[in-house]
C-alpha cells in the first residue's frame, strides 16, 4: 500500500515522541520535521533519523508544501490558529494536538468514522482521550445521566500550557464527556501529583446511569471491550481493577503507562495524545489511499 506523507510541526517533547510513533506506522511515511529552534533536541534527532528538517517554522514548510499531505501540529494553541488557516489554504489535513479546538473533536474508538472528511481534527485533552471511551462504552449499554472523571497526572508531565490554563482542561474535557461520551451532564477534575518517582497517569470514571436496574455483566463486558480497543493503539492503557457497582453508580479505574518512545513511561497522559493522533492520521491515510485506489 502506498504510504501517505506526513510532517510534524513542533520539535518539542510531543513532536519528538510523535516522530518515534510514526516511524512504526505501516500507512504513514514521515518526511519532514518542522521547528523554529535549529538547536532543539527534536530537530537534531530528526536529522539523525534522516528526515528533512525545517527550522523556519510554517513558512519554511509552505515553500515546499509537497513534502507532506498530513501535518501534526504540536506547537501551541495560539500558533495553531495561524497554522490551521495557512494549512487549509494549502489543502493539507491537520491533526491538532494543541487546545485550540479549530476542527471537530475526535476520540478514535468513538467517533473517528464521522470525521474522516474533516481537514482539521482536535484531540480534546489527555483526560478526555483516557476517559471518554469508557463513558461511551457504558452509555451504549445504559444511558448515562451524569459522568464525572478525575485525571491524576504527575506534576512533571504537566507542561506549561496546561498549567497556565487549567480551566481549559476541565471545561473542554467536560464538554467532550457530554458531546462525544454521550452523558447528559459531564464534569472533569484534574489533579497534579508531585511524588517522586513520578506516578503514572490514573483516571477514575464515575457514571450514574438512568435506570435503577443496572446490567452489571453487560456494562463490565462493554468496558472491557473498549479497553481492548484503546489498547490496540495505546498499549499501556489498562483497567486497574474490575468496574465497581453501587446502586446506579459505576466506577472504573484506569491507568495509562506511556510507551516510553521519547517521553518517559510515567507520562501516559502525553503518550495517549500522541498515540491517538497517529491513530487518527492512520485512519485518514487509509481513507485517502482507498479513495485513490477506486
Amino acid at each position: 500500500m502506498n504510504k501517505v506523507k506526513v510532517g510534524i510541526l513542533g520539535s518539542g517533547n510531543i513532536g519528538t515522541d510523535l516522530m518515534y510513533k510514526i516511524r512504526r506506522s505501516d500507512v504513514l511515511e514521515l518526511t519532514t520535521v518542522i521547528g523554529i529552534d535549529p538547536s532543539s533536541d527534536g530537530l537534531k534527532k530528526a536529522k539523525d533519523f534522516g528526515y528533512y528538517t525545517i527550522d523556519t517554522g510554517i513558512k519554511g514548510f509552505l515553500e515546499n508544501p509537497d513534502l507532506a499531505d498530513i501535518l501534526f501540529d504540536a506547537t501551541s494553541a495560539k500558533a495553531h490558529i495561524r497554522h490551521a488557516k495557512l494549512l487549509k489554504q494549502a489543502g493539507k489535513k491537520v491533526l491538532d494536538l494543541t487546545p485550540a479546538a479549530v476542527g471537530p473533536s475526535v476520540i478514535p474508538p468513538v467517533n473517528i468514522a464521522k470525521h474522516l472528511d474533516a481537514d482539521n481534527i482536535n484531540l480534546i485533552t489527555c483526560g478526555g482521550q483516557a476517559t471518554i471511551p469508557i463513558v461511551h462504552a457504558i452509555n451504549k449499554v445504559q444511558p448515562v445521566k451524569y459522568a464525572e472523571i478525575v485525571a491524576t497526572i504527575s506534576s512533571k508531565s504537566a507542561g506549561p500550557g496546561t498549567r497556565a490554563n487549567i480551566d481549559e482542561f476541565t471545561e473542554t474535557t467536560a464538554r467532550g464527556i457530554e458531546e462525544i461520551g454521550g452523558a447528559k451532564k459531564g464534569k472533569a477534575i484534574i489533579i497534579l501529583n508531585p511524588a517522586e518517582p513520578p506516578i503514572m497517569m490514573r483516571d477514575t470514571i464515575y457514571c450514574l446511569v438512568e435506570n435503577d436496574f443496572v446490567d452489571q455483566k453487560k456494562i463490565t463486558q462493554s468496558v472491557k471491550d473498549m479497553v481492548e480497543v484503546v489498547q490496540s493503539y495505546v498499549p499501556g492503557y489498562r483497567l486497574r481493577q474490575e468496574p465497581l457497582f453501587d446502586g446506579n453508580k459505576i466506577t472504573v479505574f484506569i491507568e495509562v503507562e506511556g510507551a516510553g518512545d521519547y517521553l518517559p513511561t510515567y507520562s501516559g497522559n502525553l503518550d495517549i495524545m500522541t498515540a491517538a493522533a497517529v491513530k487518527v492520521a492512520e485512519e485518514w491515510a487509509k481513507n485517502i489511499t482507498s479513495k485513490v485506489n477506486v
Binding site: 478525575v150 491524576t152 477534575i189 489533579i191 497534579l192 501529583n193 508531585p194 511524588a195 490514573r202 477514575t204 486497574r240 481493577q241 465497581l244 466506577t251 479505574f253
Partner: peptide, 14 residues
C-alpha cells in the same frame, strides 16, 4: 506512603 495529595479521594477505594 504513596504521597497522595489533596483531592485524590479516588485513591482511597483503589
Amino acid at each position: 506512603k504513596r504521597k497522595v495529595v489533596g483531592g485524590q479521594e479516588d485513591m482511597i477505594i483503589d
